[in-house]
Structure formats: structure tokens, C-alpha cells
Design a protein around this nucleic acid. Structure first.
Lengths: 205, 205, 205, 205
DNA sequence: CATGAATGAGAATTCATTCAT
DNA sequence: CATGAATGAATTCTCATTCAT
């Protein structure tokens, strides 16, 4: 988008030994993984779009899976941090609201990778790449509930999580201002959270 | 060669196939697609698990994609019916509740295929197999909203749909009676629906 | 098409679905392994010389190593039989002589495979394919010695084994009648055996 | 070169390389060639075990084959000297005995390289690296025979050579004192030599 | 209905080698 | 002396698909 200007003059830079090849690979790989799916995306395609050779990819990543792993790590860390933070806080309404708010925020940044994980679950499962991810989602869920919650309360909590999580993906297909949409997701999720915990607005926790 | 005659008395089950082979293929294919992902599942594996040859699969299905298509059709029809029914009804609270109730029900039966679609989105997209599915989800969403709804109301509707849809998958990992879980999902989704439409329990629509 | 009679002159029979492809692969593979070494021989080359596709090889053998394994088994069995036979016999001079005689004979038939094993030891070791072979040689050696033999006696026995074994390979580069060469190898080996066991021609065992 | 000053105080051994890097490469290469075979050993592995980069190897050796060539030359020269010496001597019993004695000695020193050549014959043949070696063995054989020898005599000579040559490798797997084993090999080989030339211990040559 | 044999295309990966710095 | 980044060519292997029998 804001690239523009410099773009035009550079036509023949394939030879330019770049520093950022590793990141460029991650970027293009994610792009293609989203377009065509993980399994459908061959390293040849990634290399071609980058105008390097397949072997160059192998200089930077030991395997195809390694590329995916590096991608996941980048977004896994923020979520891990969030979980760690949440576990260190008292289990209050404020904490739960903050957890959802931060998740809502993290999803905004890492949306493409999250979507990739979401849409390629089966492909990644066999490779164990995304298994850690499922655990993280469960940990987040745990932060939002109370242990002795009834089934309906649990579902309401789950529902709040889904609203933020899946809502982010669905929202990208909806019209409207992105920030406004995000805010709406969070608001609704918060309502569900309050419903789950029987918070009516009168009594605090 | 000299089979014929002895056929009926045969004790060795290999012959048990015959007419229902087509369904057995669908069954095993779905099983493997869920275990290892669509792309990761080769026809060889399907054939092996069925104890037939690859070539035998080609007698029943023209291509690998055909298998998936047949699978989707089986569950697509119920959803199509649901959509058609919904579109023929007045846009009342009762209709919307019934739409969710039927979806909740349909998911119970067709859960494995839905999950397969869910987890293999990326793999199927390229082949156009599941695109029709996304459309169906959108059509369902449309049945639940009103045209001039605000963003928050839309999100609440979406949230209701997610609760039923994703909740079904998540619930399979939760402990508790399946029927009770299903009922809880529907109840929460209905609440969200009412919230989306500002229904307070006093005035009907 | 016009196969039958014309068979001999046929130039274009690639399409003919043959029965003996498996054996033809083994044959050509061994040929190439001997010419260029195991690692240097690619499946592409084997396929080309056979005028089939690489994939055809994989129909008949699961891996490249499997080809080698199948080759070794063919000659391993005769040697195993020989060892088994030897172990069932009393440890007399006659038995030892017979062991060498049979080895001399087996080598004549399986010479190419033995030579292949001999010249590709390092290449095969890592794959564990030929390890069983080393064991067999040792077992043969054991059949020829007595437990309490002195070092010099052991060396003489070893020497007899080497004469038959390595002599067969070296002999192929020497001029002269093959049968006569084989007989000479055996005669010398027998002499060494007698020397090893202090047999002078007077006293039997 | 410009290292100098800091040189002495260095504690971190990585620098310990320097001048002897070439030899260290030869050493590690031989080690790996023996462990995994020539073709199976990649320059990457050699570099890794040496804790240098692949490119560093190329500073010392033009190609992978050059490494092997340098290795062979190191042991080829002693054998060449031995051949030259033998050819300059009268074809007496004493000369032949001395040839075997020196070979026995040379094998002791250069055993690993000899073994490498022995176990990688096929891999090296295609590259012509070891062909010179086969010639050398033949030249040695020629030094031990007389031109008009009968077949059995020739075999006995060959046998003497094999005893020293292959015996050295086999002996490394046998228990006992190395020097004693070597002596035994030479003794037996000498006996075979005498047998080949009809030397009974009465009449000299 | 089903199989045995085969193919053509393409995948991931590895290797020896190069060269600007 | 040595490295980091890259390449071109090859390799093993897998897959969906075909077809004569």
C-alpha cells in the first residue's frame, strides 16, 4: 500500500543478496497458505512468487513445516503472554473482560495467521504443528469460567469466546468500519460474559 | 473364476462388500479425512483400510473429489431444505428460533461431515467443493437478521449462529450428557437471538 | 498387437504388460549397481534402461533399498542353508572341506551379487542391508575353526576362507578356464585348511 | 596471518584450527567416509563435525573428490615406493618376503584409508579415484609371482597377498594383541609364498 | 465388479558448488 | 581465511488416474 514510490525503479534486484529473505518467505508462504491451503501450496510456488530458488527456502527453513512453525510461534507468543497474564490475575469480572479485550486486540494483528490455523486445522493436525494451539484456546476458556459453573453458564462463556474469535473472521466479510466491528464484537462478548456470570449491572464481584 | 456357486455360503467376510461398497467408501473416506486431513489422505489409504484395490474405488467414484462431493451433498441437502423452509416462512421470532433448532438438530446427525468441512476449509476451497457451503452459512445468517439491523445486532445474531455451530464441535470435547449439551447450546443461542432483536419477553413480534 | 512370432524382432514392445517386470528390475538394478555403485545409481537410470517409468519401479518395490534387499535375500538363503547344514554336522575335516566346497560353488552362481556386496559395503552398511552378511561370513569362519585354536591357526583358517571368497573375484580378472580356476581356488583353500588343523595326510580326524 | 598478537591468549578453541585445518578436514572426512560411506557423507556433515562452514572446506579443497584424492595419495605413495623398490630388486625369495613384510607394515599405518578404499570401491570407481589403486595391487601381485607359474601357484601367491591385505581388516575384529596378529598374518603369508614357489626349506633360490 | 500393472506429473528435500563480502 | 546466502541439478518417493483383462 504505502510501498509505491521506490517500487517502480527496482526492476532487476534478484541478485541483490537480501537480509530479510527469511521474513519475505514467511510473508509469501502465509499468503499462499491462505489462498490455496497448506498442502496445496508447494515450495516451488513460494519460491517462484519470491523469485528465488526452492533451495533458497531450505537455506532459511529446514522443512516446509518449519515455515509454518515459525509462523505459529509469532502469534503463539502473544497468546501465551495473555494466558500467563490472566493466570496471574484474580478471577474477577474485570480480569475476564480484559482477557477478552486483549484477545480481541491480538486477533486484529495476527488475524491472517489465526485464519490460516483455523482453515487448515486438519492439514496441520497430523504434523502436530497446531496442537499447541488447541491447548491455548482451552486455557483461554478456562480463564473465563468458574470451576463449578453449570452447563448453560459454560456455554455462555464459550459463546463469548467464539464471538470474539470466529467473529473476527466473519467480520472481515461484513461491510462496515473495521474498528467499529471489532468494538461491536467485544461489546457483545462482554454481555455474554456478564450473562454467564449472572452479573446484572447492580452487584459487582 | 470358479466363484459363483460357493458364493452364498462363503464365511470369509471379504465378500460382504457388494452393494454397499459405495457407502463403505464414503464412511471410511470421511473417517480418514477427519483423522489425517483431506490432502493427507490418499486413495491408497482408503483402499487399504477397506481391503480393496484403488481401482475399485474408481468404479464407484470418478475422482477423489467426487467422494467429497458426495459427502457434502448428503448433509448439504438437509441444510438447503432448512434454508428453503426458512425463506418460505414469515420473518418472525418463532421462525428464527425454529431455524436454529433445526440447525442444532442437523448438526447432531451430520456432525462428522460438518467438522470435516470446518477443518479442511482451505483444502476444499481451491476445489470449489465447499464454497457452496459458505454460501449456505450466509443464507442461514440472513434468515436470522433483519435488513436494517445495527452492527451490534448483527453481531448478536452471528453469535447465536456460532453458538449452535461451533458450540457443537467444542461440546464434543466437554463432559456431560450429549443431549443436555445440545439443549444448552440451543437455549443460549435463543437468548442471543432475543437479545439481537430486542425481545424482552413482554411483547412478541 | 502383432506380437507372437514376431516377438524376437520386436523393437517397440514398451506397452506389453509383462509378467516378469519384477525380475527384470532386479536384473538391471544389479547390473547398474555393479557398473556405477549403489548410491550412484538412480532409480531414473534403472527405469530408463528398462524402458519403464520410475513409478513402475515403485509398484514392484517399496523403496530403492527394497531392491537391494531382495537381491541379497536371493543369495543369502543359499549361504544360510550352508551355515545351517554345517552347524548340523560333526566338526570333522570332511565337514570343513565340504563347507568350503559348497561356498566355492555358491560363489560361482551368485558372484555378481557377492561382488556387489563386496564393493558397496560402506554404502550398504548405513542401511543395515548388508549387516546380516558380515554375520554370515563370521558364522562360516566359525565352522572352519576349532575353539581353542592358536592365533596362527586362526589366520590359516581365515586365509582359506579368503582364498575361496576374494579369490573368486580376483579370478574373474585372470585368464584361464573358469572351472579350472575355481578348482585351483578350492584346492589351495583345502591345503590351508589342512595346514590350519595340522593335518599332514597321515592321521585323519 | 594477521592473527598474531591476540593469538596466544585465546581461550576459545574455535581458533585452534588455523594451519592444520587441512589435515583436520582429511581426518574428519575419512572418519565419516568410514562411518557412512563416501556418497552418504555430505560436505555439510564434514563441516558440521569440524564446526566450520561448508565454504571453508572449499578454501582447502577444490572439490569433494579432491579430499578423497589427497587421502589416497598419502597412502598411495608408500605403496608406489614399495613397488618401485621391488621392481628394482632381483626376483628372489628374500625380495618377495620383504615385499609382503613392507606391505604388512604399510597396512598397519594406513589401515583406515585402505579400508575406506576397500569398502567404497564401487563409489570410487566411477570417479576414477581408486582405479590407480587396483593397478597397484596388481603390480604387487606381479612382484610375487614368476611369469611361467601354473594356475595353482598363482592362486597360492594371490592367497598370500590376500592374507596380508584382507587379513589386516579382519584382524581388527579379532581379539588379541595387534602386533601378535600382524606377525601371524605375515608368517602365514610367507608360508603360502613358499608353498607357491615350491620352497621346502632345504634348497634356497 | 474388481484387479494388477503402469503412468505422468509433481512433491519435498539434499547436494556440491559458487561468490560477494 | 572464512562466512552467509544462494543456485541448479538431481534424488527418492507419492499420488490420482487409467486401462486391459
Amino acid at each position: 500500500m504505502v510501498l509505491g514510490r521506490a517500487e517502480e525503479t527496482t526492476v532487476t534486484r534478484p541478485q541483490t543478496r537480501r537480509k530479510d529473505t527469511r521474513e519475505r518467505i514467511q510473508h509469501v508462504a502465509l499468503e499462499l497458505f491462505l489462498e490455496r491451503g497448506y498442502d496445496q501450496t508447494s515450495l516451488r510456488e513460494i519460491a517462484e512468487r519470491l523469485e528465488v530458488t526452492k533451495a533458497a527456502l531450505y537455506y532459511h527453513f529446514r522443512t516446509k513445516e518449519d515455515i509454518v512453525t515459525s509462523l505459529i510461534e509469532d502469534i503463539g507468543r502473544p497468546v501465551d503472554d495473555l494466558i500467563a497474564w490472566g493466570q496471574g490475575q484474580p478471577a474477577t469480572r474485570a480480569t475476564r473482560r480484559e482477557v477478552l479485550r486483549r484477545l480481541n486486540e491480538a486477533l486484529d494483528t495476527g488475524a491472517p495467521v489465526f485464519r490460516f490455523l483455523q482453515e487448515n486445522q486438519a492439514a496441520l493436525r497430523s504434523r502436530g504443528s497446531a496442537d499447541g494451539f488447541r491447548d491455548r484456546m482451552r486455557a483461554l476458556g478456562a480463564l473465563l469460567t468458574v470451576p463449578d459453573a453449570g452447563m448453560v453458564e459454560q456455554v455462555r462463556t464459550l459463546s463469548a469466546l467464539f464471538t470474539v474469535y470466529f467473529g473476527t473472521f466473519a467480520a472481515s466479510h461484513m461491510e462496515g468500519d473495521p474498528d467499529e466491528k471489532r468494538a461491536a464484537l467485544l461489546q457483545v462478548a462482554w454481555e455474554q460474559l456478564d450473562a454467564a456470570h449472572g452479573y446484572t449491572g447492580e452487584d459487582g464481584e
